[in-house]
């Protein structure tokens, strides 16, 4: 599989570390932390997810991938991703 790193270009997926759903935002209220740490949606279809280009530019990136087909629609730097 190839991951389109916004800085480096298309790279072998083995250069990356997978983290998971990019949607959860670190909360400010204490009672929201449980969901933030443990609860994840498991969508069938397009999903924005976090990958770390550990053996590349060391960027955290948000990759949009179809969880059914593994088709990748694009990627952007996490620090630039819409918040």
């Amino acid at each position: 599989m190839r991951i389109p790193c916004p800085f480096c270009g298309d790279r072998d997926a083995r250069e990356f570390v997978y983290r998971g759903d990019a949607a959860p935002r670190r909360p400010t209220a204490d009672d929201e932390f449980h969901d933030y740490v443990y609860l994840r949606a498991n969508p069938a279809g397009a999903m924005r997810e976090l990958w770390y280009h550990a053996q590349g530019c060391r960027s955290w990136i948000v990759v949009t991938r179809d969880t059914r087909t593994h088709e990748i629609f694009g990627a952007e730097l996490a620090k630039d991703a819409a918040r």
């Binding site: 570390v17 983290r19 670190r26 770390y52 550990a54 960027s59 955290w60 730097l77 996490a78 620090k79």
Partner: peptide, 17 residues
């Protein structure tokens, strides 16, 4: 070492950019 580097990059790029 590698885990902490990744953790710090996550903190500064994803949580608190």
């Amino acid at each position: 070492a590698a885990t902490v580097m990744q953790h710090i990059d996550h903190a500064r790029q994803v949580i608190w950019p």
